[in-house]
């Protein structure tokens, strides 16, 4: 009882802190909730500022309209394809590299490590022009493959650096035991070491998925037609169309569809995600 009172007193002394952070959080929550509410209201209701009243019930047809007429379905599927393939691709390519870099001493190891770290702060603006001409010359522009390849490439420095710390933390006794049993080193990696690094791989996969889902610039440059657009670009085109149609409900439904996947991932995995940012990860 006394302990509880002490606890309460301590929280009371932290009240100004609670207040400051609380107002900020309240603003964020109101914003998100209002958008969801508006996505279920009719456009006249939204215009009158009565999105939270639901006087005419919930209008799920906004979502149907956004998904079909506004073509969000296509952009959604594109982004899903880009995010999932590039997420898997970058791990398959980075994990072996990370393992080798973490485990073996060889000429160039340090150079490769520091190049990867430097690459993480290279502005996209610096690399996009040659990539564009490269894609044109390889006759790949206008296809989905070029975006997938680029997304894989963009994630490799970060993914490798992140996984390196994970492999470095694994005990060498696993490999020694495997070697005694006659397992060749490469097989040891795929069968024993890779599964052991699973927590790191899961974290880095979530990051890569979210990064690619939210990517805008490369998609703008390389998705030349609507059929290759990602959700960010697609949402922007919905926004432009809305200027003429006045379909606010559909617009907000499209916004919700676009942010829902990453928001759900974050809600369910926030501990992993936040842990990943603050421990080994350096990129948001």
């Amino acid at each position: 009882m006394k302990k509880n009172k002490l606890k309460l007193k301590r929280q009371l002394s932290l009240l100004p802190g609670h207040l400051v952070v609380g107002i900020w959080c309240l603003f964020t929550v109101i914003m998100l909730l209002w958008i969801v509410a508006a996505s279920l209201s009719t456009s006249p209701e939204i215009m009158k500022g009565e999105a939270l009243k639901f006087a005419t019930g919930f209008h799920f047809e906004n979502y149907v309209r956004a998904w079909t007429t506004n073509n969000i379905s296509r952009f959604f599927m594109n982004s899903l394809l880009y995010s999932v393939t590039a997420m898997i691709g970058s791990v398959l390519i980075s994990a072996p590299a990370a393992y080798v870099l973490a485990r073996f001493v060889f000429k160039g190891n340090l150079v490769i490590r520091s190049s990867f770290i430097t690459a993480m702060s290279i502005p996209q603006i610096m690399i996009v022009l040659p990539l564009f001409s490269l894609a044109t010359r390889a006759n790949l522009s206008g296809s989905k493959i070029v975006l997938i390849l680029l997304y894989i490439g963009m994630q490799i420095p970060y993914t490798t650096t992140f996984l390196m710390t994970f492999f470095a933390g694994l005990s060498r006794s696993y490999e020694e035991a495997a070697a005694i049993d006659g397992c060749p080193p490469m097989k040891t990696f795929w069968v024993i070491m890779l599964p052991l690094a699973q927590p790191g791989i899961v974290t880095v996969c979530i990051f890569n998925f979210m990064n690619i889902w939210n990517e805008y610039f490369l998609s703008l440059i390389f998705a030349s037609s609507e059929k290759n657009m990602s959700v960010g670009l697609g949402l922007k085109s919905v926004l432009t169309a809305m200027q003429y149609s006045g379909d606010w409900g559909g617009l907000f439904a499209a916004v919700v569809i676009v942010f829902m996947p990453t928001l759900l991932l974050f809600i369910f995995l926030s501990r992993t995600i936040i842990g990943g940012i603050t421990s080994g990860g350096v990129k948001g």
């Binding site: 900020w24 959080c25 939210n214 805008y216 942010f259 991932l265």
Partner: peptide, 12 residues
């Protein structure tokens, strides 16, 4: 909650 805006698509 404070981190949420970081994971939402910038266009959204």
């Amino acid at each position: 909650i404070i981190y949420i805006p970081n994971i939402i698509n910038a266009v959204a």
